[in-house]
Design a binder for these strands. Structure first.
Length: 935
RNA sequence: GGGCGGUUAGCUCAGCUGGUUAGAGCGCCUGCCUUACAAGCAGGAGGUCGCAGGUUCGAGUCCUGCACUGCCCACCA
C-alpha cells in the first residue's frame, strides 16, 4: 500500500475526478431487480429542480442530506434507488424564454403557440441541464440512467390519463370563478403562488345616492368634499375604488336597523349611472365601517359568493392585462391604477367621495413577478379537493406516512382541513395542455385521452383543444408513480413504490408534498394487490400501501451569516459553487450536515466551512502518516473485506493487543452506534460531530500518538500496529463516507491500490457497532492515563518548563491497579507528556509545589524553576470554590431523604462516588493552599 | 386575526425522553516548525442558560405569564 498522497490536500481536482468516475462507471444505476430478489429496498425521489434553476444553498442542503441518507442505506445493503429529474416549471420557464424573445423584439402571442413551444424546447436543450450538471459536482449518488423530465412523452401521457380519470370521476370541473389573476403573466395562479404583503394603503368612502329619496340633511352637507347629491346616500368603503365600475349591488345586513327603511330600494351607481339593488346579505357586517358594502361579483371572491346567492350580474371590468375593458365606460383602456386615480378624481368632483383614510392592507402579489394580483372572474378548471384531501389527511393521521420534525405533521393536517378547491388551469403556452376540446358549433367541451374527431353533442367536426395548460404541480404531484411506469403496471412500481423517504424544504410542503399524497393515495390504491406483479417481484410480503412515501423529513432553511433569508434583491445569496471552489465539496457538505439540527434554520457561516476544510486536511495528513508507515513496514498491506460492516478482529487485521488498541476499538464501536442512531432519526449534525470528534479528538490526537513508538520499533509489534492502523482507517473512512464522499473515496482507493473487490468505497459495507467490542475497563484506564498526561502538561506549563526539556516525575497512585496500569503504559506517558524518569512513591504528593492531585493519583513534576505562588494560589482558590460548590450540592441531595427515595439508584450511586472523590480533592487542595501559604 | 419557532461563552451553534461541576467550532491569550498535518500541536481565559413565577428530591431541559425576535397561514369592505 505504499501509495503516496500529495503533500497538499487539494479538493478541487480530487472531487472532479471521482464525480466523473461515479457517473462514468454507472455506480448508482439501479436496474429493475431480478425475480426473487429479497434485499430490502430504499427509494428516494429527488425533488425535481426547475429546468431554469441555478443551484443555491437550499438545494445543496437538501441534496447533502439526501445523499447522506442514500449512501448510508446503500452501504447497509439496501437496493437503493435515488431518482433524479427536472421540472418543466411552466411559469418560470416561459418567463425565461419570453425575456429572451423580448430582447429580439418578439412577443409570445404574436409568435403563436407552436413556435413558442418549439423555442422553449430549444432553450431547454441548451440550458436545461445546468442545474443537474451542478448537482454532479455535489457528488449526488443518483441513478442518472433514470433521469426524467416532467414533459417527457411517457410522463405527459400519464398526466393526460390522470386528468381524464379525475374528470370521469367527477373530481375535475370547469367553471367561471374568481381566481388569483396575475396581469403580468396573464394567467390564473393558485392561492399558494400568491404572497401577501402588508403595506400602508388607503380606504376610500364613497356614497351612492338612493333612488327616489330626498336627503334631509342636504343643506348641512355643504362644505364636505365635492358637492353632495340631493338624495339620501349610502356610504361604502373600498380599497379598490376602480372596481366600483363593476358593482352590481349594495349589501346591508338584514339586522342592521339603520338601513331597514332602504330594503328593496335601488341606488344609482355613480359614474356609471346604473341602477343597482340594495340587498340584504351577511356579507355586510354592521360593526364594520358604515355597515354597508359594495358588491362587485366579478372582482372579489366574497362578492362573487354574495352575487351567486342573489343572482346578481357579474360585470368584469378588466382585461387580462389589468386594464379597464369596455365594461368600464369612459375608463376603458386605462391601466387599473390610472383608472383608480381617474375614478377617485371624478367621484370627488361629483361629490360622491366622502373620505380618504389611511389603512393598513395586505395585498397579494405574484410570487414570481411581484405584480399585484387581481381577483378576477374567469373560466378555469378545478380539482374538487375534499375527497382527495380527506384521504391524504388520514394517511398522515394514521401513521402510514410519518412527517418529521413532528410539528410539521400538525401544520399539514390543519392545511388539509382548510383546503380549497385547486385551480389547475394556467393561461400559458408551456406545460401540459389540458386534454379537452371545444366544439366550434355548439361550444360543448369534451375531455378525452385522444383528440376527438367530431362533437359528441352536435356531431360538428370543428374542434379546438382548450388552450390552457396545467399547473406545474399537477404533473410533479404524480411523479412518485409516473416515474415508475404508471399507468402501465410495472415491476418497478411493485418494487419501488411506495418510495421510502422524501426529504424536502418546508416551502413546498403544500405545493408538492401534499399533492403527491393526494394523488398517490388516489391512484395507487390497491396497486400492490396486482398478484402478477407481486409474484414476479418477490415482494409478496410487502405492506399494502397506496401512499407515495412512508416518511417525510422537512429540512431547515439556509440563511446568510446574519440570519437573513437569502434573496436576489437583498444581494445576500451565497453561491454554493463558489464556496465549493474555495473549500471543497466535502467541507461544504460537512458544514451543512454539522449545522443541520432538525427544526432550526441554518445561518451559513463560512468560518465553519473553513474549519471543516481543516478537518478534511487532518484526515488527509493522517492518511499520509498511515501510508508512510505501512509503506515502510508492510508494503502490500490492504484493508480486509469488512463484510457486514464490522471491524472483525483478526480477519480485518485488527488486534486488540494494547490498552490503546482496546480503547480505540471500544470508542470506534461507540461512535459507530451513535452515528447509525443519529442518521436513523435525521440528526445529521450529531452524526457529523460525532465522527469529527472521534476522528480528530480520539483517533488522531491520542491513538496515532500512542502507536508511534510501536511503529518506530520496526518489529512484529510495529507490523501489528500497522495492521490496526489500516483496519481502523478503513472503517473510519466507511463511517465518514456518506458525509464526505470524495476524500474518503480518494484515500480508500489509494489504500486498495486498484485491487479492491468493488469499484468504490460507496459499494462497501457501512460500519455496524458490535457490543462485544465495547471495553469499559479500557475506556476507564485510558481516561486516567489521559488525565495524567494532561495534568503533567499542565504542570509543565505552570512551571514554564522549556518545551524540549524532558522532566522527571513522581507519582502516587491510590490503587495498586492504577499504578500497574500506568507502569504498563510508561512509554506512552513518557512520550506524550515529555517525561524522562518516572518514580512511584508511597504517599501523597498533592501538597508539593509543582504537583497536582486527583482522586486517582498525585503527580509531581520535579523541576527547580520556582512556582509562581500568587498565580498558583489564585488557581487553587478558584478550584477549591468549585469543589466546595460541588460538595455542597452533593451533600444537599444526599442528605435529602426524598432524593434517596425517589432518584434512580445509579444517579444516587454516581453522586456518592463523586462526593467521595470531591472530598479527597478538597483535602488535597486545602493542604496545598496551606503549604503554599496562600491567604 | 390565528398558529409555530427562537432567545445558552465575544461570534455561530449543540445540549434527544429533567439526573455528576452546561459543551463544540471560530475568535482571543500563552508557548511550540515535537520526523502526518502551522489548514498543525500543547496549555489557558470566557456563561447568574432572555425575565418573573411555578411543578419536582432535582430544571438549560416540564408548566404559566412577560419581553424581544423570526416564520407560516388567513377572502373581512
Amino acid at each position: 500500500m505504499p501509495h503516496d498522497l500529495p503533500k497538499a490536500y487539494e479538493p478541487g481536482e480530487i472531487e472532479k475526478r471521482w464525480a466523473d468516475y461515479w457517473i462514468k462507471e454507472k455506480l448508482f444505476s439501479v436496474p429493475t431487480p431480478p425475480e426473487g430478489e429479497t434485499r430490502p429496498v430504499f427509494t428516494l425521489l429527488l425533488p425535481p429542480p426547475n429546468v431554469t434553476g441555478r443551484l443555491h444553498m437550499g438545494h445543496m442542503l437538501n441534496q447533502t442530506q439526501m445523499d447522506i441518507i442514500v449512501r448510508w442505506h446503500r452501504m447497509r445493503g439496501f437496493i437503493t434507488l435515488w431518482l433524479p429529474g427536472t421540472d418543466h416549471a411552466g411559469i418560470a420557464t416561459q418567463m425565461m424564454v419570453e425575456k429572451q424573445l423580448e430582447r429580439e423584439g418578439k412577443k409570445r402571442r404574436e409568435m403563436g403557440r407552436e413556435k413558442f413551444i418549439e423555442r422553449v424546447w430549444e432553450w431547454k436543450r441548451e440550458y436545461g441541464g445546468a442545474i443537474l450538471d451542478q448537482m454532479k459536482r455535489l457528488g449526488a449518488s443518483v441513478d442518472w440512467d433514470r433521469e426524467y423530465f416532467t414533459m417527457d412523452d411517457n410522463l405527459s401521457h400519464a398526466v393526460r390519463e390522470v386528468f381524464v380519470r379525475l374528470y370521469e370521476q367527477g373530481l375535475i370541473y370547469r367553471g367561471s370563478y374568481i381566481v388569483n389573476w396575475c396581469p403580468w403573466h396573464e394567467t390564473a395562479i393558485s392561492d399558494l403562488e400568491v404572497k401577501h404583503e402588508d403595506v400602508p394603503g388607503k380606504l376610500w368612502e364613497i356614497r351612492y345616492p338612493v333612488v327616489g329619496t330626498e336627503n334631509p340633511h342636504f343643506s348641512q352637507n355643504r362644505g364636505e368634499m365635492g358637492h353632495p347629491p340631493s338624495q339620501e346616500c349610502i356610504t361604502v368603503a373600498t380599497t379598490r375604488p376602480e372596481t366600483m365600475l363593476g358593482d352590481t349591488a349594495i349589501a346591508v345586513n338584514a339586522k342592521d336597523e339603520r338601513y331597514t327603511h332602504l330594503h328593496g330600494k335601488k341606488v344609482l351607481l355613480p359614474l356609471m349611472n346604473r341602477e343597482i339593488p340594495i340587498i340584504t346579505d351577511e356579507l355586510a357586517q354592521p360593526e364594520f365601517g358604515t355597515g354597508a358594502v359594495k358588491v362587485t361579483p366579478a372582482h372579489d371572491p366574497n362578492d362573487f359568493a354574495a352575487g351567486k346567492r342573489h343572482n346578481l350580474p357579474e360585470i368584469n371590468v378588466m382585461d387580462p392585462r389589468g386594464r379597464m375593458n369596455e365594461n368600464a365606460g369612459r375608463f376603458a383602456g386605462l391601466d387599473r391604477y390610472e383608472a383608480r386615480k381617474r375614478v377617485l378624481h371624478d367621484l370627488q368632483e361629483q361629490g360622491f367621495l366622502v373620505a380618504e383614510k389611511d389603512y393598513a392592507l395586505s395585498i397579494g402579489k405574484c410570487e414570481r413577478c411581484g405584480t399585484v394580483i387581481e381577483p378576477r372572474l374567469s373560466e378555469q378548471w378545478f380539482i374538487k379537493i375534499k375527497p382527495l384531501a380527506d384521504r391524504a389527511r388520514e394517511a398522515v393521521e394514521s401513521g402510514e406516512i410519518t412527517i418529521a420534525p413532528d410539528n410539521y405533521r400538525q401544520i399539514y393536517i390543519n392545511w388539509m382541513n382548510n383546503i380549497h378547491d385547486w385551480c389547475i388551469s394556467r393561461q400559458l403556452y408551456w406545460g401540459h395542455q389540458i386534454p379537452a376540446w371545444t366544439c366550434a358549433g355548439c361550444s360543448e367541451v369534451m375531455v378525452a385521452r385522444e383528440a376527438p374527431t367530431k362533437c359528441t353533442k352536435c356531431g360538428g367536426a370543428q374542434l379546438e383543444q382548450v388552450p390552457d395548460v396545467l399547473d406545474t404541480w399537477f404533473s410533479s404531484g404524480l411523479l412518485p408513480f409516473t416515474t415508475l411506469g404508471w399507468p402501465e403496471k410495472t415491476l418497478d412500481q411493485a418494487v419501488f413504490y411506495p418510495t421510502t423517504l422524501l426529504i424536502t424544504a418546508y416551502e413546498i410542503l403544500f405545493f408538492w408534498v401534499a399533492r403527491m399524497i393526494m394523488f398517490g393515495c388516489h391512484f395507487m390504491q390497491g396497486h400492490e394487490q396486482d398478484a402478477a406483479i407481486k409474484k414476479a417481484s418477490g415482494y409478496a410480503g410487502k405492506k399494502d400501501d397506496s401512499v407515495p412515501f412512508r416518511h417525510v423529513y422537512i429540512h431547515a432553511l439556509v440563511r446568510d451569516a446574519e440570519r437573513q433569508k437569502m434573496s436576489k434583491t437583498k444581494g445576500n445569496v451565497i453561491d454554493p459553487l463558489e464556496i465549493i471552489e474555495r473549500f471543497g465539496t466535502d467541507a461544504t457538505r460537512f458544514t451543512l450536515a454539522a449545522m443541520a439540527a432538525p427544526g432550526t434554520d441554518i445561518a451559513f457561516n463560512e468560518n465553519r466551512t473553513d474549519g471543516y476544510r481543516a478537518f478534511a486536511n487532518k484526515i488527509w495528513n493522517a492518511a499520509r502518516f498511515m501510508f508512510m508507515n505501512v509503506g515502510r513496514l508492510e508494503p502490500g498491506l490492504r484493508p480486509g473485506t469488512a463484510e457486514g460492516g464490522c471491524l472483525h478482529i483478526g480477519v480485518d487485521g485488527f488486534q486488540a493487543a494494547t490498552l490503546e488498541d482496546r480503547w480505540i476499538l471500544s470508542r470506534f464501536n461507540r461512535v459507530t452506534a451513535d452515528v447509525n442512531d443519529a442518521l436513523a432519526t435525521y440528526r445529521f449534525h450529531e452524526a457529523a460531530n460525532r465522527i469529527y470528534d472521534f476522528f480528530w479528538g480520539e483517533f488522531c490526537d491520542w491513538y496515532l500518538e500512542l502507536i508511534k513508538p510501536r511503529l518506530m520499533a520496526e518489529d512484529s509489534s510495529a507490523r501489528a500496529a500497522c495492521g490496526n492502523l489500516v483496519a481502523l482507517f478503513d472503517a473510519a473512512l466507511r463511517l465518514l463516507h456518506p458525509v464526505m464522499p470524495f476524500i474518503t473515496e480518494e484515500i480508500w482507493q489509494a489504500m486498495q491500490e486498484g485491487k479492491a473487490a468493488v469499484k468504490s468505497i460507496a459499494l462497501t459495507s457501512y460500519p455496524q457497532a458490535d457490543e462485544k467490542q465495547l471495553d469499559l475497563a479500557a475506556e476507564t484506564d485510558m481516561a486516567i492515563l489521559q488525565d495524567l498526561i494532561v495534568s503533567i502538561r499542565n504542570l509543565r506549563a505552570e512551571l514554564k518548563v522549556e518545551p524540549k526539556v524532558k522532566v522527571p516525575i513522581e507519582l502516587f497512585a491510590h490503587e495498586r491497579e492504577v499504578r500497574t496500569m500506568i507502569e504498563q503504559n510508561r512509554g506512552a506517558l513518557e512520550r506524550l507528556a515529555n517525561v524522562e524518569k518516572m518514580t512511584f512513591v508511597e504517599s501523597s504528593l498533592a501538597k508539593l509545589a509543582g504537583a497536582r492531585g486527583t482522586a486517582r493519583f498525585d503527580v509531581h513534576v520535579v523541576y527547580e524553576r520556582k512556582v509562581d505562588v500568587a498565580a498558583e494560589c489564585e488557581r487553587l482558590k478558584k478550584e477549591l470554590e468549585k469543589i466546595e460548590k460541588g460538595i455542597a450540592s452533593g451533600e444537599r441531595q444526599l442528605g435529602n431523604e426524598q432524593f434517596l427515595a425517589k432518584a434512580p439508584a445509579n444517579v444516587v450511586e454516581n453522586l456518592r462516588k463523586q462526593r467521595q472523590e470531591l472530598g479527597v480533592l478538597k483535602e488535597k487542595t486545602e493542604e496545598k493552599l496551606k503549604e503554599l501559604g496562600c491567604r
